[in-house]
Design a protein around this nucleic acid. Structure first.
Length: 594
RNA sequence: CGGAGCGUAGCUCAGCCUGGUAGAGCACUUGCUUUGGGAGCAAGACGUCGCAGGUUCGAAUCCUGUCGCUCCGACCA
């Protein structure tokens, strides 16, 4: 390809709406352009890099035994209602209506479609296992698109779906994908590592995310350098000790705490109740019912765990009005000690809010569920709110004085806590999620009536798994990880062109141009992706652009070195080498094949 | 959806407070000079000042509404 033939609109300055380095470079290097928030056009160079990532994924998926299909982006609402996700995923679905006013969803993933396909076409254990994948445009009505391709409304994803006869076989399929993912990201030049993950509304019970460490990532990963434990913070646990039990103390005692509404204030003079001897009481609305959550004063609630452990579809913190209606006190003075709960209080006393999870207005505290964090189990001599503004209770024994419905691990792990497996201190770092593998079980096959006849003549739902890679996000992660002050540093495997030939004179009769054409032809014949910068620009402009776009290898043809019978070969992040003209092609091939 | 900010040339931004002929740098076109790390000089082209309404003799500037974008939060397969 000749530079003047394609479109590479490089920018000296980044548009002001780009925040992170990879987003700026995508724009500055002329890879993408924004059409609207979270919606981008891929320019020729960006598309080439994207196709390379896609092809790596294709090769590895094929190698792992998956077969490629292409499913529609336009999906009828009905199958989403059948799976239940029309409701659980409603906030992210892009919806469209046709002229007959029929509602369609633009595909954010394709569990429903592939399972419908399997229901029709897979009838026997002899057809299993199967793993179908596709690489296609997906849509998600993101609340807040940001960071360019990182979190977009429209993006390209590889999604794969496996079908197996048994749970054990499903694990085999899962691990094939897990291994394929490791190879895919390694081939893209990414340092990606798997972490244990929550499954979210997609369902299932076993899951790993593939993470690329980056300060600009939107996930926190907890990991142990000693034993290799790694988990998304939404899922992570630690070996932190439970609250120390003390001598069974005196009866609960109310004391005045005027104006004290925070854990911190209560820990100071004149009360001096350390945060780790306080019980924090939170009220959430989960699936239209209020629940009370108890967590130690120095711990933070993990909402993902709350939803996962309680089996709720969705949950949100209760508003101060709702809390007052239920407990008779404002946040800061709340508690769950049985004697302070008035079970006749209810939400009907408050106005409904406009938040997206509504509550059942007739509900009262009668039968309210109280979930406590495991770390509080057995704790006594604790202090908590008295459900009366300006008062707290001391000498609280959680098992004696509070009717806990269930105990769960609900707290968020902090850095430095001991690893649950090996006791070494845990670390936390930010990361970008580029892939996610789930074992789904039979949730979708059952909901959409997919069954096969097993060897013993029984009819069963196949055990499914699903496996996603954010292709466009992966591309951006490659840039986020590979760049310097001059621009992108592409790995050879993903670079839009592997080699950029830069003649400093471009008239057809010039020695530099003739030689450039010759190198171009020879390298192209060897299967190397080459671009020839035939622009009539000053050398500085051409070098700056080559560095900005980040071609892994640059060959400069200038008068100075040509007179000495040499050309210059410059790896993007390596030392300049002078090579005899006759040896240049071989030298470049060696670098490309390295 | 809550909080904050911004919409002026292709890009970065000034002008707005205090109303009076729409600006700079980069990019673009032409010419001359220059030619190994984003050249110089000269000439030129490029604007419904996001949109709608209002106030005013007069609005980029003040007011109201609206749309879009960005950031923080909430949310997130």
């Amino acid at each position: 390809m000749k530079w003047t033939q394609t479109l590479i609109p490089t920018l000296r300055e980044a548009p002001s709406d780009a925040e992170i380095v990879s987003h700026k470079l995508l724009l500055r290097a002329g890879l993408i352009r924004k059409l609207a928030g979270g919606v981008y056009t891929f320019l020729p160079l960006g598309l080439r890099a994207l196709r390379k990532v896609e092809n790596i994924i294709r090769e590895e998926m094929d190698r792992a035994g998956a077969v490629e299909v292409l499913m529609p982006a336009l999906q009828p609402k009905e199958i989403w209602e059948q799976s239940g996700r029309a409701e659980t995923a409603k906030d992210v679905l892009c919806k469209v209506k046709d002229r007959a006013n029929r509602e369609w969803f633009l595909s954010p993933t394709a569990e429903e479609v592939i399972t419908t396909l399997a229901a029709g076409e897979i009838n026997s254990y002899r057809q299993l296992p199967k793993n179908f994948y596709q690489i296609s445009t997906k849509f998600r009505d993101e609340i807040r698109p940001r960071f360019g391709l990182m979190r977009a409304k429209e993006f390209i994803m590889k999604d794969a779906y496996s079908f197996d006869t048994t749970d054990e076989n499903a694990m085999v399929s899962y691990h094939k994908m897990y291994d394929a993912y490791k190879r895919i990201f390694a081939r893209c030049g990414l340092q990606a590592f798997p972490v244990e993950a929550d499954t979210g509304v997609i369902g299932g019970n076993y899951s790993h995310e593939f993470m690329v460490p980056a300060e600009t990532g939107e996930n926190d990963v907890v990991y142990c350098e000693a034993c290799g434990y790694a988990a998304n913070i939404e899922k992570a646990t630690s070996g932190i000790p439970k609250t120390a039990a003390r001598e069974i103390g005196a009866a609960v005692e109310k004391f005045a705490t005027p104006g004290v509404v925070t854990i911190e204030a209560l820990s100071k003079e004149p009360y001096k109740v350390p945060a780790n001897r306080q019980i924090k009481t939170l009220v959430f609305i989960a699936d239209s019912k209020p629940i009370i959550i108890l967590i130690r004063g120095d711990d933070q609630l993990n909402e993902t765990k709350l939803i996962a452990k309680t089996g709720a579809v969705a949950a949100r913190p209760a508003t101060p009005e709702e809390i007052f209606a239920l407990l008779g006190a404002k946040p800061g003075s709340l508690g769950a000690v049985t004697s302070t709960l008035n079970f006749e209080r209810g939400l009907s006393a408050t106005k409904n809010t406009d938040t997206y999870i509504e509550f059942d207005a007739n509900i009262t505290l009668e039968g309210i569920r109280i979930y406590a964090d495991e770390r509080l189990r057995g704790a006594n001599d604790m202090t908590t709110g008295a459900n009366e503004d300006g008062f707290h209770l001391r000498n609280v024994s959680i098992e004696r004085d509070i009717k806990v419905t269930a105990w769960f691990d609900l707290r968020t792990v902090s850095a430095g806590e001991p690893c649950a497996k090996c006791v070494k201190p845990l670390k936390i770092r930010r990361a970008i999620e580029v892939g996610h593998v789930f074992k789904l079980g039979t949730k979708y096959s059952e909901a959409l009536n997919a069954t096969f006849l097993d060897v013993d003549g029984s009819r069963k739902p196949p055990v499914m798994g699903c496996y996603g890679i954010g292709v466009t996000r992966t591309l951006q992660a490659v840039i986020e990880q590979g760049n310097d002050k001059d621009g992108v540093i592409w790995p050879l495997s993903v670079a839009p062109y592997q080699v950029c030939i830069t003649p400093l004179a471009v008239t057809p009769e010039s020695e530099a141009m003739k030689l450039a054409e010759k190198f171009y032809a020879e390298l192209t014949a060897q299967g190397v992706d080459v671009i020839l910068d035939d622009r009539d620009e000053r050398p500085g402009v051409k070098f700056k652009d080559a560095d900005l776009v980040g071609f892994p290898i640059r060959i400069a043809l200038g008068e100075k070195s040509l007179l000495k019978g040499e050309v210059e070969i410059k790896p993007r992040s390596g030392a300049l080498q002078f090579v005899k003209i006759d040896e240049a092609v071989a030298a470049v091939l060696k670098l490309v094949q390295a």
